[in-house]
């Protein structure tokens, strides 16, 4: 009898949780739709697609810790949810999408607190924090912050090309080679892959390292890795054009080349993680 009752209660809980999930998606649908539009159209934020599945996977990994003890719901969650929905509606009305995206995460925090309490919120903290990385940095701010890095990449590349005795003249992010000028990237763009590599460093560190300072180090390493692979990317483009008359900036070859460069970035991060993991182990052993 008790087993049947337990089964029935579980069924009700599941349906209620699904109803809340459905309502959450429906309420924030315009913001989700806008997010997916940006993820699919911007090279800088295409990593957004993996964030929600990654957060769900991390939650799944922590399911035992979450369900170990019964929840202790907190009323504090209610004003947070209500505040988030008000901020969201204002953001929709005013057309401030970044605020609308942040409201989704705020509503989730409030909902977890309201139903599960502080302990469960602590257990879910990292997956919820990870969701911040699905939010695109407004393009003007992103470009403003990363454009100097892109200029640095162009400078280093032009210097290296000169060392290889290839005549080159640089105007900002535009490289002029004999008989051919090309923009190594749109001249007005910022550095590519920064957000993807920062996110990857964050995830990799969280999943495979124990020390928080080493995790932070791996996260920050995404920036120099992005600079390094962008130098390699531009250099490869120049060399391919100069020696093979092959234009890697357009067509199908550009896509495959881009994937290869991203693979190189992932390999570099993984290599760095391997070094940090050794320190992690020695620190744990000490």
């Amino acid at each position: 009898m008790q087993a049947e009752e337990r089964h029935e209660n579980r069924r009700i809980d599941l349906w209620l949780a699904l109803a809340v999930l459905f309502a959450l998606v429906l309420a924030f649908w315009p913001a989700w739709k806008s997010l997916v539009g940006i993820w699919s159209s911007s090279e800088d934020f295409s990593h957004g697609f993996i964030i929600v599945p990654a957060a769900l996977y991390l939650l799944w990994r922590r399911r035992e810790a979450v369900t170990r003890r019964p929840p202790r719901p907190s009323w504090m969650g209610l004003p947070v949810v209500l505040g988030a929905t008000l901020v969201y509606l204002f953001a929709l009305l005013a057309g401030v999408w970044t605020l609308a995206y942040l409201a989704i995460i705020l509503a989730l925090i409030g909902a977890v607190l309201f139903v599960g309490g502080w302990r469960i919120l602590r257990e879910c903290a990292f997956p919820l924090f990870l969701l911040l990385f699905m939010i695109p940095v407004p393009s003007q701010i992103y470009t403003y912050l990363t454009a100097p890095l892109q200029l640095f990449v162009s400078q280093v590349t032009a210097g290296t090309v000169k060392l290889l005795q290839i005549p080159v003249y640089r105007e900002g992010n535009i490289l002029h080679l004999p008989g051919h000028s090309f923009q190594v990237i749109q001249a007005c763009s910022g550095l590519r892959s920064v957000m993807s590599l920062l996110t990857l460093g964050l995830l990799l560190g969280y999943l495979t390292l124990r020390s928080n300072s080493l995790r932070t180090l791996l996260f920050i390493a995404g920036l120099p890795v992005a600079i390094a692979v962008n130098v390699v990317r531009v250099l490869a483009m120049v060399l391919a054009l100069h020696y093979l008359d092959l234009d890697l900036t357009a067509g199908e070859v550009h896509t495959w080349f881009g994937l290869g460069i991203f693979g190189l970035a992932v390999a570099l991060l993984y290599l760095l993680r391997g070094v940090l993991a050794k320190w992690d182990r020695s620190a744990a052993a000490g």
């Binding site: 209660n9 009700i12 809980d13 209620l16 949780a17 109803a19 809340v20 309502a23 959450l24 429906l26 309420a27 924030f28 649908w29 315009p30 019964p70 929840p71 719901p73 209610l78 949810v81 209500l82 929905t85 969201y88 509606l89 929709l92 009305l93 509503a107 909902a111 309201f114 139903v115 599960g116």
Partner: peptide, 28 residues
């Protein structure tokens, strides 16, 4: 999950459905 959590889930769903209703109203 106890009855308290269930009541809160229902309240949460209602708040979110109300938000959805307002958010999906046609704009200019």
């Amino acid at each position: 999950m106890g009855p308290l959590c269930r009541r809160r889930l229902i309240l949460l769903a209602l708040i979110l459905m109300l938000t959805a209703f307002v958010a999906h109203r046609p704009t200019a």
